[in-house]
Design a protein around this nucleic acid. Structure first.
Lengths: 194, 194
DNA sequence: GTAAAATGTTAATCTAGTTCAACATCATTT
DNA sequence: AAATGATGTTGAACTAGATTAACATTTTAC
């Protein structure tokens, strides 16, 4: 449950020499947040990218009417951040809040820039990670336009069973872009259908 | 109107030596597509990333009912591709079709992999390009959830005036996720409001 | 310059999903 | 074990936007 977990994960994607591992160890920190704590708050500059060792977070946006809109959930072995805020070091549009006690590996903006210079293959690594995230985001847009709420829920349930089990239903409704009452109705329909 | 346009654009982001420019020239090709031609077809593997020198494309998905859903428009100085298909060299989910006669710079998968090795700072360049695209995609998800169709149209009009002028209204409706009839109604409301 | 095709408009009817309100269940704290 | 807060359910009334269909306008091709 320490930085080794993170290095093991990284070594699945890029081969790190011992020196490179040492450089990384020097520039990343492990941090624990409690349930409900914020990693990033809307309006603040997002200072780090965060790799989740254990726990679960939600990334959401609070609209003008005070309504919460969940953009993504993140669990073990995934990255979370407000990337727009982080990359341009400007105030963030999103909040990232822990839904469970959460252990992270954090890399600050300055440290990541240094690491990119010291270990250029990290550029390649993050290029691939962001490509994957972008592709998932595009597919989500399409699903939101071409499928009704029940289909979207069925896909969510099937694609992210681990999230579906851990996260309260009203948050899943927000992620799907529907009201909690309507998700409740969908779930009871799905039960009656079988 | 040739590869120089592309190299000038690239030099805004990363400094290329003469040798690097020569490597690039050797691995990219310029190609012209006519209006209505497809650069990528749903089901085919997307073989290249495409930088638009002139023209306009739409990226869309054809659903089970034969309905077209536009994910993005691309114009001069932007990239277009089915990134999911390209990066994993698997069949694409999307079509990319020219809305106007379009001149592109194309880089094939193999050539881009070679170029990444020859010019590692290209990794950095594409990391940044994809980061930007991902951030825009996330913001779009939020807008689709938190704003009604009229607000979304107003933002579109304001953010992409050059696209709004060039592209038929029924395609903009598809991009916004609404019917063409409803967009027509929205536009007449906006005219009456002033 | 005319026909055909593509694009845009208007209005009536319909529906997926919202909102509100009241209640039910579950979890946590004392 | 009672009380409080968080989560989930149900139903009635409502609305943003879809669908259909008929017509209007603009563009393209011959």
């Amino acid at each position: 449950m320490d930085i080794s977990t993170f290095l093991t994960y990284l070594n699945n994607y890029i081969d790190l020499t011992d020196e490179e591992e040492a450089l990384l160890r020097a520039k990343v920190v492990r941090r624990t947040y409690l349930k409900n704590q914020y990693i990033v708050q809307q309006g603040d500059v997002c200072t780090s990218v965060n790799f989740i060792i254990s726990g679960c977070t939600k990334t959401f946006f609070m609209d003008a009417e005070g309504q919460e809109h969940i953009v993504m959930f993140s669990i073990e072995e995934w990255w979370t951040s407000d990337l727009g805020s982080f990359t341009s070091q400007t105030p963030s549009d999103f909040n990232v809040q822990c839904i469970e006690n959460t252990q992270l590996i954090q890399i600050t903006y300055q440290n990541l820039e240094t690491l990119y210079r010291q270990i250029p293959k990290l550029e390649r690594f993050f290029r691939k990670i962001v490509e994957r995230a972008f592709v998932a985001s595009q597919k989500r847009i399409i699903r939101n336009f071409s499928l009704d709420a029940k289909e979207r829920y069925k896909i969510f349930e099937h694609t992210y069973p681990r999230i579906n089990q851990r996260v309260p239903q009203y948050m899943i409704a927000s992620y799907l872009g529907i009201s909690k009452e309507f998700l409740s109705k969908i779930k009871s329909q799905l039960i009656n259908e079988q």
